[in-house]
Write a protein that binds this DNA or RNA. Structure first.
Length: 202
DNA sequence: ATGACGATGCACT
DNA sequence: GTGCATCGTCATG
């Protein structure tokens, strides 16, 4: 996975991250839900320009943007885009590695509730402010792209009040680990692997 | 099953 | 002071 893979529109990156395996300190799983945010999008933290909080969004692509949500939770994005100020929010994982540690951190044993939300997965993986700005493909993080194209679900984003109609939320079809179901499940053609990271398609 | 609500930090009119 | 890119708990159908 190279910098060029992240130098794309956040919608494209959000789609291609579905099915990738993300870990922090060897703990994590398969990304099953993402949302795209763009600086021209009123719902994006970057919409009003750079601030102390969103500085990572205006830095190099392929880095983490971590922010505190509702004063309680952390949320993890991956900075991307052709121009500045775009990112993909990681909303849910299918737990795969370090499940015992994640359960202990979360205080739950139900795998379906372990990483099924942006705040939950950060608690499970131990993502905090200290990871803001860190490269997502270097230790302690690891990001392995999908080897096979996967079937995608598309829908409107969750928990926002602006630009609510943009269909910029993506999910892995059939996953039991989504934060919420997709209202009118609409599938996208499975063409979502990173070009540089898998066997070339015919 | 779905809906209300509080916790709690911080960026920003 | 207001508004969140949330989550758990409690209340009801």
């Amino acid at each position: 996975m190279t910098t060029a893979d992240f130098a794309r529109h956040p919608v494209e990156v959000a789609q291609r991250l579905i099915g990738a395996r993300l870990t922090l300190g060897g703990v994590g799983g398969v990304i099953v839900e993402t949302e795209a945010y763009h600086h021209e999008d009123p719902a994006s933290h970057s919409h009003a320009g750079p601030t102390a909080r969103n500085a990572a969004m205006f830095g190099p692509v392929g880095r983490a943007y971590v922010y505190r949500s509702y004063g309680v939770h952390w949320c993890l994005n991956i900075v991307c885009g052709i121009d500045l100020g775009s990112a993909v929010l990681i909303r849910a994982l299918e737990p795969v590695e370090g499940i015992e540690l994640m359960c202990a951190r979360r205080g739950v044993s139900d795998l379906r509730r372990l990483c099924s939300g942006p705040g939950k997965l950060c608690q499970a993986l131990g993502v905090t402010q200290e990871h803001d700005g860190m490269p997502i493909e270097h230790a302690p993080f690891q990001l392995r792209p999908t080897e096979r194209p996967v079937e995608l679900l598309v829908g409107p984003r969750i928990g926002i009040s602006k630009a609510v109609d943009l269909p910029w939320r993506f999910g892995l079809a059939g996953s039991k680990h989504l934060s919420r179901p997709f209202p009118r499940p609409h599938r996208l053609q499975p063409a979502n692997t990173f070009p540089t990271s898998s066997t070339p398609q015919p």
